[in-house]
Design a protein around this nucleic acid. Structure first.
Lengths: 189, 189
DNA sequence: AGTGTAGGCCAACGCTTGTTGACATCCAAT
DNA sequence: ATTGGATGTCAACAAGCGTTGGCCTACACT
């Protein structure tokens, strides 16, 4: 045989990850992915069953949050920002997920699950206060997703021009405060 | 005649705004919008020419940034967050824009223009430093879009549960620092 | 009463999409 | 050399989409 099925599967998967990351679920067509992988669209169906299942495999993702217990407690914010930037740039799956979650409830639910199961536990470890954990995790998620949105998805020029280290320097203290800073007082509304 | 054309146009526009805000450009179909407005899809074409033109009208948007010159300089961050939350909740157009910009380059460009033409001038007025303006504006945009993403688009439960005032209390200082705080030192990378 | 016109509907077009089943091709084992 | 299963191609399907043109229908005029 010219190729093993495993090779072809990997070829399709690589093309799928790129297309899904660049275009999101709807606009990334099976035909385009197949063309990129230089095979027939029918092969995609044979190996992955359906477009939905292909996406599920292509967008498998782990935040790979580092063990922060050994790190200076005051450096945790910066370390987290740095880690997320690396993660966004190394793995197309996150872009695919975000681009799709915005208009696809099932994928939005997957995104919520990732944050609830991976980010929240880390926050509770750092703060030790389970009551405030959800709020603090949501704030961290908002800032992290926000910077990714303007840098990688919407491509605001000044956001693109910032170096990773400059980004870490600006966002580190923000994340640090969301994680370990005092809860602000506010008027009940 | 049963209705004036202006009434029908307004009816279509209202339905379009809702659908575009809820589903984004691709998934919001002309047929669905027409059904919501209880008219025939052909009427949409007659009154708006094409789906693209309908979106252009439905997603017209102004940030309506307030004049902040009269406000205590230290309160500007909180005032801005409050204003943006109100704006997100009052106008479907912003949700429509964000849900679409993520997978549509032309709409992403519109979003970049809105921030460049409306947010950046406000930042330069507040900081007086044109050199750092783009970076600071991008940071403000990242945090504002990030909170909107988790609250209104991805609907993270803890982000939804936060009251507007609680959100202002947490994000106000962040925006304040991005606007008027000192630029952080960082290792050139 | 008759007529022109603006508002509205219907059926169909051409296109793209995911998906399917039949057919071709190749290589390894007999 | 001949099989047989795995790899790959092809053409077509049904459905959904934006879009179009023709055809009603009801009202405001003369």
């Amino acid at each position: 045989m010219r190729r093993s099925s495993e090779q072809t599967k990997a070829l399709i998967l690589a093309a799928a990850r790129e297309r899904f990351a660049a275009d999101g679920y709807e606009r990334a067509t099976i035909r385009a992915i197949a063309t990129d992988a230089r095979i027939d669209p029918a092969m995609v169906m044979r190996y992955f069953g359906s477009k939905e299942k292909l996406f599920a495999v292509a967008a498998e993702f782990d935040l790979r949050l580092p063990d922060l217990t050994g790190i200076d407690r005051e450096q945790v914010g910066s370390a987290l920002v740095r880690h997320f930037l690396d993660r966004w740039e190394a793995d197309d799956a996150l872009q695919a997920l975000l681009r799709t979650a915005v208009t696809n409830e099932a994928v939005a639910e997957r995104m919520r699950a990732i944050f609830a199961e991976q980010l929240a536990p880390l926050v509770v470890r750092l703060t030790g206060d389970p009551e405030q954990t959800p709020t603090r995790a949501a704030l961290v998620g908002a800032q992290i997703l926000g910077i990714a949105l303007v840098r990688y998805i919407l491509a605001f020029p000044p956001a693109r021009l910032m170096s990773n280290e400059e980004t870490v320097a600006w966002l580190g203290p923000t994340i640090q405060r969301y994680l370990t800073g005092p809860a602000p007082a506010y008027q009940q509304g």
